[in-house]
């Protein structure tokens, strides 16, 4: 039986065309044959698609496109960073570093009503604000000033100049705006943190530093029951401060 005859018999048997029919019939279905041929070429179309880059790199300029942090041109102010807190006391580079000996500031500093919002903070201090301050402190300051603010952070242990402890009487007496000032303008070996902290966050960090200071001189009588218990438990074996230097992203 010739090939043609065979396929005729088959197509009588079933009305629908089976794949075999299509493929074995000569000449008649050249269109279908072409389609199948084209189908076989499809993989190569995918291969070539992988090489098209023009949609991957649009002409528009993206942040970090050339892998570099672009600097602010001189004399420009980033959006939203000018006068963020019009109500805040203007602290400038000229503000004299405050020490307990400076007359005039001691008055406000003797009773640092720290966390009440009367210490020059541009907002009413609340738990949310302190939480934010804590997280920003742990990110930006902890590497050097340490978890407790005693100036014994990891970077200091690696050889950086040791900052004074926040529990130094001079810094306890300083107004909160002084901390804002140090963050804004830097101080000695410490550089300014303006490009890492927004003005608002700087105030929140200052508020958190107040908390740290309080935490080290809290009056046991004023504490809640839970805290009292924790202290008596901790007091027994403990002599040194547990200066955990683990940043949240650390070990």
């Amino acid at each position: 039986m010739s090939k043609v005859e065979k396929s005729k018999v088959k197509s009588k048997k079933s009305k629908g065309k089976s794949m075999e029919d299509i493929l074995t019939r000569k000449g008649r279905n050249s269109r279908q044959a072409f389609l199948i041929f084209a189908f076989c070429l499809l993989p190569f179309a995918f291969l070539s698609a992988a090489c098209r880059q023009d949609m991957h790199d649009n002409p528009r300029y993206e942040a970090n496109e050339d892998g570099a942090n672009r600097q602010l041109p001189e004399g420009t102010v980033a959006r939203g960073s000018l006068d963020l807190n019009p109500s805040a006391p203007k602290v400038t580079a000229q503000a004299a570093p405050v020490s307990a000996a400076t007359p005039g500031v001691t008055a406000g500093a003797t009773a640092p009503a720290a966390i009440t919002g009367e210490d020059g903070f541009p907002f009413k201090v609340s738990k949310e604000i302190l939480d934010r301050g804590e997280s920003r402190y742990n990110i930006s300051c902890l590497p050097c000033h340490g978890k407790l603010g005693d100036g014994n952070g990891m970077i200091v242990q690696r050889g950086f100049r040791r900052p004074p402890s926040y529990h130094d009487p001079r810094l306890k007496a300083a107004p909160s705006s002084y901390f804002y000032d140090v963050m804004t303008n830097g101080f000695g070996a410490m550089s300014s943190y303006t490009d890492q902290l927004t003005p608002e966050d700087r105030w929140k960090v200052a508020a958190y530093i107040r908390v740290l200071q309080l935490s080290q001189r809290a009056n046991v009588a004023e504490l809640g029951e839970d805290d009292k218990k924790k202290i008596t438990e901790a007091a027994a074996p403990k002599t040194e401060t547990k200066g955990g230097n683990n940043a949240p992203g650390g070990h």
């Binding site: 930006s140 902890l142 590497p143 949240p248 992203g249 650390g250 070990h251």
Partner: peptide, 9 residues
């Protein structure tokens, strides 16, 4: 890893 600096620094 060694110095414990947070990513967001």
């Amino acid at each position: 890893g060694d110095d414990g600096i947070d990513c967001r620094y």
